[in-house]
């Protein structure tokens, strides 16, 4: 079982610093998790550390491929509101 990082990662290094298993590595486009090393923090912490510090929503996925931090959960911006604003900006 392992978590994974997808391409919305902004390469902020935060997860890299807090992983107890040294499972996270820098890779060309963005940081990645080595599935062989990732323990999901079992035995070390109650919560997966990378997903507890990552500032970007929908960037770290659980073993089932679900976003641990879904849209709106970290910024507090309701997804509809975000979409509305982005549509408006793009229409300018």
């Amino acid at each position: 079982m392992a978590l994974s990082i997808v391409d919305s990662c902004v390469n902020c290094w935060a997860c890299y610093d807090v992983c107890p298993s040294n499972a996270i590595y820098q890779s060309s486009a963005h940081f990645k998790i080595n599935p062989k090393k990732c323990t999901e923090c079992e035995g070390d912490y109650a919560h997966p550390q990378c997903a507890s510090i990552c500032p970007i929503e929908e960037t770290i996925l659980d073993a089932a491929g679900e976003a641990i931090n879904p849209l709106g959960s970290l910024t507090g911006i309701p997804p509809e509101k975000m979409k509305e604003a982005m549509d408006e900006i793009q229409a300018r």
């Binding site: 902004v10 390469n11 902020c12 290094w13 935060a14 890299y16 610093d17 510090i53 500032p55 970007i56 970290l74 910024t75 507090g76």
Partner: peptide, 14 residues
């Protein structure tokens, strides 16, 4: 220093 330990409402790490 790229990493951060808090989120501010005036900041967007993207």
């Amino acid at each position: 220093a790229p990493a951060c330990n808090i989120q501010c409402h005036y900041c967007n790490r993207k």
